[in-house]
Design a protein around this nucleic acid. Structure first.
Length: 824
RNA sequence: GCGAGGGUGGCGAAAUGGUAGACGCGGGGGACUUAAAAUCCCCUUCCCGCAAGGGAGUGCGGGUUCGAAUCCCGCCCUUCGCACCA
C-alpha cells in the first residue's frame, strides 16, 4: 500500500536523515489519547442540563451491546449523529448527546444459552467493551447520563410505564397465537421462523394459543397516521409508517344466517360488489364456526381447524395455495336475497377486520382462485366501458377506475367509486351495514415467555383477580436464577422460581402469583429518550422541568430498519403519556433522518462471508479521526456507502496535509484568491452539514486543501485556522490539537463556527459556457455582471464558436454566470 | 404480488433543467532525493486524430425543451421492506 499508516515507533524515533527543524508528524494515536483524556478531565462533553442555553437534543439509536462488539454500521450511525451534534454546538447550541444500551431481549438470552453463560454476567462485560470502543471513536457523548435497560434503576420505570397504560385500560390480556419451537421449547418471533422451521434448530414450528399482554395501540391508529403529515421526518420513514398503519375505508356488512340468531359480519373495501358475493369465508378460528357447522360436515371442519391450528403462523400466510372446507350452512346475501354457502379457509385471517369475508370471486384475486378450485359460482358485477354485463371472467376484474356496476339491481351503471358510497348507504338504511375505517395495525403484543426482560408488574390473586404491583413496590426485580432455560410448558422460566413466583396480593394480602412473562424490548426502547436527561434521578422516571427543556428530541438519526416498530411504539408511548398529563408534547422526535447502510465491496457484510469490518483494527491503524471522516466520505449519509479498505488512505492523506499546513503556518497576510476559496468552502460546509451531505462537505474541504497547499505553499494563519474549525465535527481530536497549536487555549468546540462572507466568496470572473443549438462550442471567461448583448458579441468574436453559427441567430438564451445558447 | 429506493468512468461517487464525471481511490508520467518514503506538479470517460480538432456518452426505447443524468410515458435490471390485510 502506497500510504502506509504512521506507526508510533516511526514517529517517536527521529530518523537521523530528517531535518531536525522539520515539524513532527501527525500521530493520531497519541493525539487522540491526549484529547480523550482532556475531554474527560475538563468535562468537555458533559452537558449543563439545567442552565445550558439554546438546548439541542441530538439523539442516536442506542445499540444492543453484542458480544462481538461494535460493528462498523453502529459507528457509521453514531458518527453521523455526532457530527450533527458537534456542528450544532459550533453553532452556539448547548448540545445533549447521550448514549446507552438496549441490552434486554432474546438475542442476549440466546447468546448466553449458546455459550453457556448467564446474561446477567455477560451483559456488563459487553457493555464495558462497547464503552471502550465508543470512547475510542471520539463521540461527544455525555456519559454521565447513560442508560442501561437491564439495570433495575431503569426498568423500574419501564414497569411504571406499563402500569400507567394498565391503569388507563390500555394494557389488557387476551389469547393469541404464537410460534412455538417444540425442540428449543420456546416462543419464536416471526423473523425466527424460516420456511416453517425454527431458524436455530430446523424443527417444524407449531402454533400455540397463549394468554398475552397487549397494548391498545389501535386506539391511536388515526392519530398516529394523521400526525405524520406534521413531522419533519425522512419521507421513506413516513411512508413505511403509513403503510404499516394501513388505513382502509370500507363497510361492515352483516349477512343473516337463516335459523341462527346472529348473522356474520364482514369487512369489505368493495361494498359495491356485494351483488357478486357468491359465498362467505370465515377464518378457521372464527367463534361462529362451531355453531354453523352441520353434523355432516363436522368431522371435515374439525380436521381442517386442527390442521390450521397446528400450522405455524408464517407459512400459513406465505403459502398461497387455497384450502378450505364447507360448513354445511348458508347465509343470505342481503343485496340479492340469495342463499350463499359458508366456508372456512385459512386465507381469511382472524386478526384482520372481522375474521370473515364476503367472497366476490369475479373481482378479487384470492376469491377467484378459491372459487375456481372449489367450483363456486363466479358472477360479474363490474364491467369496463363497452364490455358486456355477462361477459365471462377468465380472471378477476379488479380495476376500479373505469368500471361500472352491472348485475347489481338498482345500482347498474353506477361507477365503482359512487357505487361504494351508494351501496353502503343503502345497506345502512336497511340496517345491514355501515361505513367503517379499518386499520392493518394490530394491538401491540408485549408478552415474552422468556427470562431476559423486565417482569410485567402484575400479581394474580384468586380472590381479587389480576392486581397491578403498587408503584411503591417497583421495581419487580428480575431474579438472578441459573435455570433460565425455557421449557416445554409455554410458561416463562420465572414460574419455576418459587420464592419469586409466590407473593402476597397487594390488595387482600393472601398468597398470589406473579405474572411470569417479561415485556418486549420495544417497550424498553419506547421511552428511553425521556430518561436520558433524568438518568441520574431515582425518584421520578423523568423530571418535569428537564423534560420540558430538552424534549421533544431536536434531531433523531437512526436506521430505517426501525422505521416502523420502534419509531411507532415510541410515538404511541409518548402520546399516551401526554394524554395522562405526564408530558406536554405528543410527538417525541421533531426531526428524524434515516441513515443508509454500509456495505463492503458491493456485498452486504456478514459473519458467514467473513467480510465484516472490524472498527478496532482500522482505528488502531489509521486513527479514529480518519476512520470517522472516511465513513462519512463513502457516499451520501442517507444512502450509505461501500466500504473499501483502500479508500481510507485518501482521507488520511487529507488529515496529514492539514497537520502539515498548520505546522508550517506563517504570519504573512492572507492571499485574496485563497480567502475567496475559503469562504466558498465555509459556505458549502455550512449548508451541506445540516443536510447530512457530509461527503460533499468533506470534498469541499479537500478542494480547499488543494488550493491552500498548492505548490507546497505555506499558508497564512487566517487561511488555515477556519479550516481547522470546519473539520472539527469530523476529526474532533485533530482539530483540538491543531487549534491549540494555533495558539488557542479553549476547546475548538467552544469557539464557534467561522463566519461566511458572501462578498469575499464572490468570483471576479466566471466561466460562461457557450452553446450553439444546445451543443457546447466554447467557454468564455467573463465578468459575472456581463450583459446578454456583450456576451453575444464576445462569443461571435471567437472564431472557434462563430464557425458553428451557420445562419441567422433566431434565438438567444442567456443564463447569467452560467451559459449562453445561440439558436440558429 | 404490493410498497420504497437505486442504475453515471477501472472503482467509491459529484452534478436535481444550464460546461457530465467535482472530490477521493486505483493507474500513468514528472520534480525533489545518493536512494526510498513523504511532499509537490501534470495526465487519466470512450472512439478517431501527430496535433488542432471532431464524434459518442449517465440501464434500454420514446417524449417535452433552445438545452435532460435531472421532468414525463413505456420497458429491463437491482437492493431493501411488507406480504392471502378482504
Amino acid at each position: 500500500m502506497s500510504a502506509t499508516p504512521f506507526r508510533r515507533s516511526e514517529m517517536t524515533e527521529p530518523s537521523p536523515h530528517l531535518d531536525p527543524a522539520a515539524p513532527e508528524g501527525y500521530d493520531p494515536t497519541a493525539v487522540e489519547a491526549r484529547w480523550q483524556a482532556r475531554w474527560r478531565e475538563r468535562g468537555t462533553n458533559q452537558t449543563d442540563l439545567v442552565h445550558g442555553e439554546r438546548p439541542f437534543y441530538a439523539l442516536m439509536m442506542f445499540p444492543y451491546p453484542s458480544a462481538e462488539g461494535l460493528h462498523v454500521g453502529n459507528l457509521f450511525a453514531f458518527t453521523g449523529t455526532d457530527i450533527y451534534g458537534r456542528f450544532q454546538r459550533l453553532q452556539g447550541h448547548t448540545v445533549f448527546e447521550p448514549l446507552g444500551y438496549d441490552a434486554f431481549g432474546i438475542h442476549s438470552e440466546n447468546y448466553a444459552l449458546k455459550v453457556g453463560g448467564h446474561p446477567m454476567r455477560l451483559i456488563p462485560r459487553n457493555i464495558a467493551n462497547f464503552r471502550r470502543q465508543l470512547e475510542r471513536a471520539g463521540l461527544m457523548v455525555d456519559w454521565s447520563q447513560s442508560v442501561d435497560t437491564t439495570d433495575p434503576s431503569y426498568y423500574k420505570w419501564t414497569q411504571w410505564v406499563f402500569l400507567q397504560l394498565y391503569k388507563h385500560g390500555l394494557a389488557y390480556k387476551k389469547k393469541a397465537a404464537v410460534n412455538w419451537c417444540p425442540s428449543c421449547k420456546t416462543v419464536l418471533a416471526n423473523e425466527q421462523v424460516v420456511a416453517g422451521a425454527c431458524e436455530r434448530c430446523g424443527t417444524i414450528v407449531e402454533q400455540r394459543l397463549l394468554e398475552q399482554w397487549f397494548f391498545r395501540i389501535t386506539d391511536y391508529a388515526a392519530r398516529l397516521l394523521d400526525h405524520l403529515d406534521t413531522l419533519d421526518w425522512s419521507d421513506t420513514t413516513k411512508t413505511a409508517q403509513r403503510n404499516w398503519i394501513g388505513r382502509s375505508e370500507g363497510a361492515e356488512v352483516t349477512f343473516p344466517v337463516p335459523g341462527h340468531e346472529v348473522g356474520i359480519t364482514v369487512f369489505t373495501t368493495r361494498p359495491d360488489t356485494i351483488f357478486g358475493a357468491t359465498y362467505m369465508v370465515l377464518a378457521p378460528e372464527h367463534p361462529l364456526v362451531s355453531a354453523l357447522t352441520t353434523p355432516g360436515q363436522r368431522d371435515a371442519v374439525e380436521a381442517y381447524r386442527a390442521r390450521a391450528a397446528k400450522q405455524d403462523l408464517v407459512s400459513r400466510k406465505v403459502n398461497k395455495e387455497k384450502t378450505g372446507v364447507f360448513t354445511g350452512s348458508h347465509a343470505t346475501n342481503p343485496a340479492t336475497g340469495q342463499p350463499i354457502p359458508i366456508w372456512i379457509a385459512d386465507y381469511v385471517l382472524m386478526e384482520y377486520g372481522t375474521g370473515a369475508i364476503m367472497a366476490v370471486p369475479g373481482h378479487d384475486e384470492r376469491d377467484f382462485a378459491f372459487a375456481t378450485q372449489f367450483g363456486l359460482p363466479i358472477v360479474r358485477v363490474v364491467a369496463a366501458e363497452g364490455v358486456d354485463a355477462d361477459a365471462p371472467l377468465a380472471e378477476p376484474y379488479v380495476e376500479s377506475d373505469r368500471g361500472r356496476l352491472v348485475n347489481s339491481g338498482a345500482f347498474d351503471g353506477r361507477p365503482v367509486a359512487a357505487g361504494k358510497q351508494e351501496v353502503t348507504a343503502w345497506l345502512a338504511d336497511r340496517k345491514a351495514g355501515r361505513a367503517v375505517t379499518n386499520y392493518r395495525l394490530h394491538d401491540w403484543c408485549i408478552s415474552r415467555q422468556r427470562y431476559w426482560g423486565p417482569p410485567i408488574p402484575i400479581i394474580y390473586c384468586d380472590a381479587c383477580g389480576p392486581q397491578p404491583v403498587p408503584e411503591a413496590d417497583l421495581p419487580v426485580v428480575l431474579p438472578d436464577i441459573e435455570d433460565y432455560r425455557p421449557d416445554d410448558s409455554g410458561i416463562s422460566p420465572l414460574a419455576r422460581h418459587a420464592e419469586w413466583y409466590h407473593v402476597a396480593c397487594p390488595r387482600c394480602g393472601k398468597q398470589g402469583r406473579r405474572e411470569t412473562d417479561v415485556s418486549d424490548t420495544f417497550l424498553d426502547s419506547g421511552w428511553y429518550f425521556l430518561r436520558y436527561p433524568s438518568a441520574t434521578r431515582s425518584d421520578v422516571p423523568f423530571d418535569r422541568a428537564l423534560t420540558r427543556k430538552w424534549l421533544p428530541v431536536s434531531t433523531y438519526i437512526g436506521g430505517n430498519e426501525h422505521a416502523v416498530l420502534h419509531l411507532l411504539y415510541s410515538r404511541f408511548i409518548t402520546m399516551v403519556l401526554h394524554d395522562m398529563g405526564h408530558i406536554d408534547f405528543e410527538e417525541p422526535f421533531t426531526r428524524f433522518r434515516a441513515h443508509g447502510l454500509i456495505i463492503k465491496e458491493g456485498a452486504k457484510m456478514s459473519k458467514t462471508k467473513g467480510n465484516v469490518v472490524n472498527p478496532d483494527q482500522f482505528i488502531e491503524d489509521w486513527g479514529a479521526d480518519a476512520f470517522r471522516t472516511y465513513l462519512m466520505f463513502l457516499g451520501p449519509y442517507e444512502e450509505g456507502g461501500d466500504f473499501r479498505d483502500a479508500g481510507i488512505s485518501g482521507v488520511k492523506r487529507f488529515l496529514d496535509r492539514l497537520w502539515l499546513a498548520v505546522s508550517v503556518v506563517t504570519d504573512a497576510p492572507a492571499d485574496d484568491a485563497v480567502m475567496r476559496k475559503l469562504h466558498q468552502t465555509i459556505g458549502k460546509c455550512s449548508t451541506d452539514i445540516p443536510k447530512l451531505s457530509y461527503n460533499t462537505a468533506i470534498a469541499a474541504m479537500m478542494e480547499y486543501m488543494n488550493v491552500l497547499r498548492k505548490g507546497e505553499r505555506r499558508p497564512a494563519r487566517a487561511e488555515v485556522a477556519p479550516l481547522v474549525q470546519l473539520v472539527a465535527p469530523f476529526a474532533p481530536h485533530l482539530a483540538e490539537e491543531l487549534w491549540e497549536r494555533l495558539g488557542n487555549s479553549r476547546s475548538v468546540f467552544d469557539c464557534g463556527w467561522p463566519a461566511f462572507d458572501a462578498a469575499l466568496a464572490r468570483e471576479e470572473t466566471v466561466q460562461l459556457a457557450v452553446q450553439v443549438n444546445g451543443k457546447l462550442r466554447g467557454t468564455l471567461t467573463v465578468d459575472p455582471g456581463i450583459t446578454q448583448d456583450e456576451a453575444v458579441a464576445l462569443a461571435r468574436a471567437d472564431a472557434g464558436i462563430e464557425k458553428f453559427v451557420t445562419g441567422e441567430v433566431r434565438k438567444v438564451i442567456f443564463v447569467p454566470r452560467r451559459l449562453l445558447n445561440l439558436v440558429v
